[in-house]
Nucleic acid binder design. Sequence first.
RNA 1: GCUCGGGUGGUGGAAUAGGUAGACACGUUGGACUUAAAAUCCAAUGACCAUUGCGGUCGUGCGGGUUCAAGUCCCGCCUCGAGUACCA
Length: 937
Amino acid sequence: MGYDFKGIEKKWQSYWAKNQTFKANNQSDKPKFYVLDMFPYPSGAGLHVGHPLGYIASDIFARYKRQKGFNVLHPQGYDSFGLPAEQYAIQTGQHPAKTTLENIARYREQLDRMGFSFDWSREVRTSDPSYYKWTQWIFLLLFDHYYCKEADKAMPISTLVGRFELEGNLKVNAVCDSSVSTFSASEWNSYSEEQQLKILLAYRLTYLSDTEVNWCAALGTVLANDEIVNGVSERGGYPVIKKKMRQWSMRIGAYAERLLTGLDRIDWPEPLKEMQRNWIGKSIGAKVFFQVYGHDIKIEVFTTRPDTLFGVTFMTLAPELELVQQLTTPDQKKEVEDYIEKTKHRTERERMADVKNTTGVFTGSYAIHPFTGEQIPIWIGDYVLADYGTGAVMAVPCGDQRDYDFAKVFNLPIKNIFKSVSIEEQAFTEKENTVIDNSDFLSGLSHKNAMKAVIAALEERGCGRGTINYRLRDAIFSRQRYWGEPIPVYYKKGIPHPLTLEDLPLELPEVQKYLPTEEGAPPLGNATHWAWDTCSKTVVDNSLIDHQKVYPLELNTMPGWAGSSWYFYRYMDAQNSSEFVSEKAKNYWQDVDLYLGGNEHATGHLLYSRFWQKFLFDLNLLPVDEYAKKLINQGMILGTSAFVYRKSGTQTYLSKDLLTSEDTVEPIRVDVNLVNASDELDIAALKEWQPHFKQANFEQSKGVFKVGREVEKMSKSKFNVVNPDEICDQYGADTLRMYEMFLGPIEQAKPWNTAGITGVSGFLNKFWRLFYEDNWRVTEEEPSKEALKITHETIKKVTYDIEHFSFNTCVSSFMICVNELHRLKCYSRSILSPLTILLSPFAPHIAEELWENLGHSTSITQEPFPVVNELFLVEENKAYPISFNGKMRFILNLPLDLDQEKIKKAVLEDPRTIEYLNGSTPKKWIIVPSKIINIVC
RNA sequence: GCUCGGGUGGUGGAAUAGGUAGACACGUUGGACUUAAAAUCCAAUGACCAUUGCGGUCGUGCGGGUUCAAGUCCCGCCUCGAGUACCA
């Protein structure tokens, strides 16, 4: 029998809770270290074995850092606003707050079982009014600021108003809606208050606008781009269409450049940074204005290849542009309208699937080339997207493949402007080694020089300028949902007005139903008390809205990413009711040293939170402008689904190995918990599990029924969920912790299987048996040299591996060490003590128990982590250990004094030994890998 | 299509700066203990050849290259995965 993990785990978990072992202090002489996990959304399904992977890794690191003498902050909380609780509420009428609380209780219980060293006194919940008060407050700050491009930071709206009053907006260089027209100071001062507020709204960092949004009718809400996968909603897989709606947005685009350059200063995984770079999508080029022939209209285009300006032979506009109506001549009107109608009805999907078909229509109008004065036909085509750049392109068929295809289909001219390049077959899209030709003053220039020359010329003539364009869209901030933070805004004559900090938190009202109202308003429209009385500062009955001082409140709520964009600062000072975080706390903790989470948040949470960070940094509210120094993406643990195969149209199921290619069978998922490690199905249990299997006939082979396997995402609906509780019951939390680490590298996605868990379980029992075999067997003897050597090697290796987040190899090192000690029959206290400390971050319960048994009265979690001396064998004229970045190599100086025959023999026998002569010093050196020296010494 | 990341035994995976590839674990086989089973312990386990012993040949997706030495570096392919997509 193994050790009693159940008793031990219970004992130490309550010991840690009672003694508040992991409570962190906001002041200390020790250096600080902040280890953060992405907090979970508490779903009804509870935790599965995939969830704890990152938590185990971060817990090991947090425990390690404590033992290395750091003051460690390692908190946990819940991202508790979200759609599933609301969907559940719609179906059952249960208040989302209630189900959320139940789910949190369940999560907490499961987390506690695994012995995590969280400081629970700092727990946060995004759905708690004391928390979302501050989320709403940050919204108000965003509302009250604009982005000044001169200062390259956010500035108060009052500053902007001051400038408008003095000089209008002509000289103001700020990020704003494209609809803003210029005005002078006297014009500004003559505007009514409403007009002024409307203009200011176009500058605020959070603003209202009619935007084309992704509307999901089934969910009754809009979705952000990153909430849509393959044209359907990420959650539920419902269809999504484009629709114009009045929405709150966040001007994240203002921060595009800083979000991009900030990436170079943080130690995040390169693939993730690359995803953010692509998402931001910076392209350098120019804007060019084309005058339309016979109209007082300028068409603005964005191009990354202004150097090819003389190759323009036509223009193409996105069919959605309003401009198209004005440009269409009477002859072309019908054709154009038919085309626009046709593209409107094509879904995103059809457009995507139909990439190869080039379609378009001539508008009948012509533009004037800014340099040659030539007339250029203006076309519309759906290969041009309305929401990228300006929605219009100057077509250069010789230098762009899509323009080339378009020109070929509609028989438009193709002008070659590249020296010694053939464009008979396709466009020439290279930039390097390009010489521009046939282009007036650009002829003979390289791509790079032509870019400079043409931009200078455009700017001089006032018909264009060098520009940088970003793909990053402003983030839509409104959700037509109930279970989210209310947006703290009321409307007066249709203009949004902010509440003040004193009015917060603006708490969610009670509603009878959680669906949108019959008029199509968001669920908050169902509330009977949801309006704002500016005198009493209380929420009053909606029926009083006509009263002159009572105004309707915003009915939309905030999206899921709002609460998660700043929670890591709340942990520093979670109980503070007067500030979002105190000066003292944020100045002490500064930022996150290690952040662990999945990379599915790459272009969502991890981008939005960096945006808010930079904004709050601009306001001097936060000490740094990147909040996480280092980030690690843990890979997902996948499920291994099990399938049985039913012969079509029958009640007969075939064992996997009986399947032939002739059989037509339907695979049906069954619960993986009914299948053993050899893929054999427990048929009796299956019949219990789902009654319709009772009449079924199972054709076995050799007495067993085999299932098919497939690796996919772990999900309740796929019956492939493995619950950590079951593993804890069977093997204990320490085994689960070590096994999850042993599965493979932390960043890698890997399927869950329990095949190897006995190995880890056996290891912990073996470790236990170093201390107990029937009786206590730890001795006070001096350990042998061999035992010391393996222990020191293990200490060195494990320390290195923890620092490099290679936890799977740590487990291997432990196993080697314990096996070796058993072989050596070494039960010496001076070996087992440091080894127990070494193991304690991985298997804290067993380590605490043994530590107590070794006669210590304090918790092992504060015990200094063991270290070894790096240098040994430094004797003049014999051997010098030399360390290169942690790797040991030895250089033996041969000619001087080599009487140690052992060394000589080992060195000469090693085939890797090489000799080389150093030119300046006529000495003979031999480089030998460290392994050999270890053997000899 | 573009960008990024992979491809190592029956399996998960080691190899930390280019230095004896396959650590560690699972699985398999054989053995010890046991009435038996479980548990535990010991041994073997990349392939092929030889097997009386010594041993030998090949081998990290494929083909080249650099090097005394390549899983690792360079060039060209094949392939799997992720992200993104008519981005001007």
